[in-house]
Write a protein that binds this DNA or RNA. Structure first.
Lengths: 207, 207
DNA sequence: TAGATTGTTAATCGATTAACAATC
DNA sequence: TAGATTGTTAATCGATTAACAATC
């Protein structure tokens, strides 16, 4: 066990635990029970204990899981302990809001560079980052070992941004719009869909 | 069939189809195959055909599904054909970006009011919406039949916004940060977790 | 000791997939 | 007619859940 390739379900749940654990640590709590994790994730507590116990004995009976240790253990299982560099596409309101937030930093991601097509924005600073022109993307990806692209541009421009990232060698893309993105096999594109989530919640609310 | 309560899995997948179909329609395509839907959703095409066929015969063999008809049919199945009003919490960069986008409008949601705690922002206009003080939330929820809250405030303030929404009677919340939110049973809170999604994608990329 | 929570088993349910006849 | 894609069956796999002994 341990060295086997994880199933998609298990990897997805472990990532989810990791995200919640990071928030728990941020809130100053050092121990968490499977019950509490279940409350935040919506995943059954038995499922959580089973997921974790298949990799080792991380918990203390009667107490719960040590947050710091569990974070370290899961990161090891997922092979994602390092720092991962991001290229942020778009320096408008959404892009700036993303650059300002801790959301990525808290999980070992680093926004290494920020890009725009608008010449009026290129050269300006957002926090510590200077906005670069998209034509510099390929070089920046190579120089900074960027493996993730985050797209925060108007929906009409999303496909162009995605194409530029793919052309530059980026294979993991997070798209903040709900525009559909065409991408070649081997490339992962995750698009936001708040409306989809809301319609789903609405069904159970109205029923 | 048809009138039975949907399982969570089915409702989630139908919402996902709906989101993709709306984008497909926007792109001007009038027909889509289960194969194409599968490509965009990551859901197996047999699963898609099975989900749909359990409610009726929506497709044409050899052709695919009519996009407009399928949207209407799924909305009917989900009982979410109407217009649904949203209260948007936060008028900063993120809030403004959300107010400017079509993401909610495209799916029958309407941002009916926008709130902030900062007196300097209250009264200003973002597009056609005038920013109101949070103290007016409860009244606005009642007046405008608001059933969904979208939170776009700094992570330290997320819980306060959620509390205000819940106090005002809102039971469905979409949180644009990855801060954990405590909410009473009966309330649905969906929080964004881009980092979680990325770690998941990263595992399969690195493996 | 008493209370709480893990680790694990066993049984059930839903998701996934391949395959293919029906039919547009 | 030929090609494509739905609708549906059957078989497999993973997720979910209840229950509870082990143990902190």
């Amino acid at each position: 066990m341990g060295s086997k390739r994880l199933s998609h379900g298990v990897a997805a749940r472990l990532s989810r635990y990791l995200q919640i654990l990071a928030q728990t640590r941020k809130a100053g709590r050092s121990v968490i029970s499977s019950q509490a994790l279940s409350g935040y994730s919506g995943i059954n507590s038995t499922q959580i204990r089973r997921d974790l116990s298949s990799f080792g004995r991380f918990g203390k009976r009667g107490v719960g899981y040590n947050v710091d240790n569990l974070i370290a253990s899961i990161k090891e299982i997922l092979h994602t302990s390092g720092r991962h560099n991001i290229a942020l596409m778009g320096s408008g309101k959404l892009g700036s809001a993303i650059a300002d937030s801790d959301m990525f930093m808290d999980h070992g991601f680093h926004i290494a560079a920020m890009f725009d097509v608008d010449p009026a924005r290129v050269g300006k600073y957002v926090g510590l980052l200077q906005v670069q022109h998209v034509s510099e993307l390929k070089q920046a990806v190579a120089d900074n070992n960027i493996i993730v692209g985050v797209i925060a541009v108007p929906s009409e421009a999303v496909q162009d941004s995605a194409d530029a990232l793919i052309e530059a060698g980026v294979r993991i893309i997070f798209n903040y719009s709900d525009a559909l993105v065409d991408a070649p096999p081997g490339t992962t594109v995750h698009s936001l869909s708040p409306a989809g989530e809301l319609l789903y919640a609405l069904y159970f609310y109205l029923a």
